[in-house]
Design a protein around this nucleic acid. Structure first.
Lengths: 332, 332
DNA sequence: CTCCGGTGTTGAACCGTTTCAAACCGATTT
DNA sequence: AAATCGGTTTGAAACGGTTCAACACCGGAG
């Protein structure tokens, strides 16, 4: 009773399994009357196709994996939301994997995804040590598109946002507002996005003679931001503004400062990164560097299916978007 | 070249495929020396197991699906985070599906999940019309646990939070603060959580003679909350407080009120629901009804694996948690 | 020398599809 | 009457693992 297979359906309808398969996959290749009989049997028995068997035969699954740094970060859910429609309309199924900014978890996901013979992979790698694993999948004919990260020398398609420029925008904005001493909050530095945003920030600080200090955090979340500014407040001299590696950190920083009675932006300004929806709704609406989140996801999916359909003759494309600064009360 | 199979490994190591399988699945049943040879061949050829084939034989996959109403809602990501460790330590793989509060999407996911022969299903159903689909999976021996929703007459395990009580808490809190005219913001009413929270709220309002009006929204997100209060402000008489079906709606309401110069809480108080992390970090920190999010997920996973291991002799358990009110500035 | 038990290994069956060459069939054509 | 031709249907061979009964081998006991 447990599972009914095509064989059962075939028997019930008095046809061969080949015909049942045809009814499901190329309905018009089978006679009207037969088709009706088979469909009736399917309904009668409550038959459900077995995807494993299908995949085994096909050699690939229809799953497209999206591996993100943090599913709880609205930035990534928006990216996924952007990619979903295109993937689904192409007959794919989206699987979201959360690496949690942890190389180990990321590696475990990649192992499983490879065993699953996924159709393709959209990934925001945790850091450079992910490279060899990703290469492995790519080497086994699984198309890979890097998301929110340039491909560099790697032979993949990618969609990225110019994080160095984003860092510059943030620092320039603060410098313009008259800040001469600022702090960058975020980490770990091994995350390329963090490194790039910091690099851009540093460039501008040096160019315009602004003092920059770096407050490294163990991760990019609210708690990390709160703890970082608390440590900062414990010291005698403090910066007049902080630039946070993403909005979650910024929200944490805002919370930390507020809890300790530091007025934002009067005593300490804040700039975040990503411009997630919550940034505008924060206690003090956050200035932030906006990225085209949904478009990032959509384009990534597009590149993936281009690569799949073009096959051998495919040449990798690397798309780079420009971020823009959104000024709000936290730097007024 | 494309894919190398166990046969290739067997040939390279000079053993039979059965032995290769044993090396992978019961290493100690095979001689030290042989094992080494096989492992070497595996490494040499870059062999990766084919999960479809495994599943086909096993009859089930190791995927545990978690179907949520909205992945972008931190409430659900926290529930998933709570469930993940237990599922993974039991050898399962988590698949998150987003129904987006849409019955059609939910149904499509369920169809696919059934074809995939998932190991189990944790689901927060969109509404009562989901019942027949869920029954179908359950009827095909796929254990189902309802999340954030009581099982009622249905034969499933469930973990829920007493939403009626939560609604009562919110209303009682507002009544105590002296509000005599309040609005409930949320919808669609077909979502059980919404209906229950409203029901509890209504009970208290009637008991204590508070005027209650309902502002129905098409969904439970920030935009819906903002638009609902904007419509409310356009009218002559307005409530002195709003109770929102969840925190996203509440954040939207806060945004809408602030944008139109209405002071929170002086001119209009707000109570949300879920107590997501962003609630405390909002422009005006939100009072909210807290649910044990992670524990909800953890317990759900626990019930699922209990059911799987107990097999036939299993009796369904229905766990209900009690919510608690967290008072903050938005009702001060 | 035979028999026995235990340890390793083998080979084939099986899981549920898809695919494709071959068979079938009734109607036209030659 | 034979050959040809679409439109349908069939049957069996993959796909890549897991499982298990059967077998080979070896040292020790009788």
């Amino acid at each position: 009773m447990s599972t009914t297979s095509m064989k059962d359906v075939a028997r019930a309808a008095g046809v061969s399994v080949g015909t049942v398969s045809n009814v499901l996959n190329r309905p018009d290749a089978v006679a009207e009357e037969t088709r009706a009989r088979v469909l009736a049997a399917i309904a009668e028995l409550g038959y459900v196709r077995n995807d494993s068997a299908r995949q085994l035969r096909a050699g690939r699954s229809r799953n497209v994996a999206v591996v993100v740094l943090d599913v709880a970060n609205p930035f990534f859910t928006d990216v996924v939301r952007g990619a979903e429609p295109l993937i689904e309309s192409a007959g794919g199924v989206v699987t979201v994997c959360d690496s949690g900014e942890d190389v180990g978890r990321e590696r475990r996901h990649l192992e499983i995804l490879e065993e699953q013979r996924v159709l393709g992979l959209l990934i925001t790698p945790v850091d450079d040590s992910s490279a060899s694993w990703i290469e492995r999948l790519a080497g086994h004919d699984i198309p890979v598109v890097l998301v929110d990260r340039g491909a560099g020398r790697h032979p993949y398609c990618s969609v990225a946002v110019d994080d160095v420029h984003g860092g510059r925008l943030a620092a320039a904005h603060l410098a313009e507002r008259g800040h001469r001493r600022i702090a960058f909050v975020g980490g770990p530095a091994s995350i390329p996005q963090v490194a790039d945003r910091l690099a851009g920030c540093r460039q501008v600080c040096e160019e315009s003679g602004v003092d920059l200090e770096v407050l490294a955090t163990p991760g990019l979340n609210v708690a990390a931001g709160r703890e970082a500014v608390e440590a900062m407040l414990a010291r005698p001299e403090r910066p007049t503004a902080v630039f946070c590696a993403n909005d979650l950190v910024a929200l944490g920083a805002l919370q930390g400062l507020t809890m300790h009675g530091v007025k934002v932006p009067q005593e300490c300004a804040i700039v975040g990164y990503d411009d997630i929806d919550f940034a505008a709704a924060a206690a003090v609406p956050l200035s932030s560097v906006r990225q085209p989140r949904a478009q990032l996801g959509r384009t990534a999916a597009q590149l993936l299916f281009d690569e799949i359909s073009e096959g051998q003759g495919h040449t990798h494309r690397n798309v780079v978007f420009q971020p823009e600064l959104v000024a709000r009360a936290s730097t007024a």
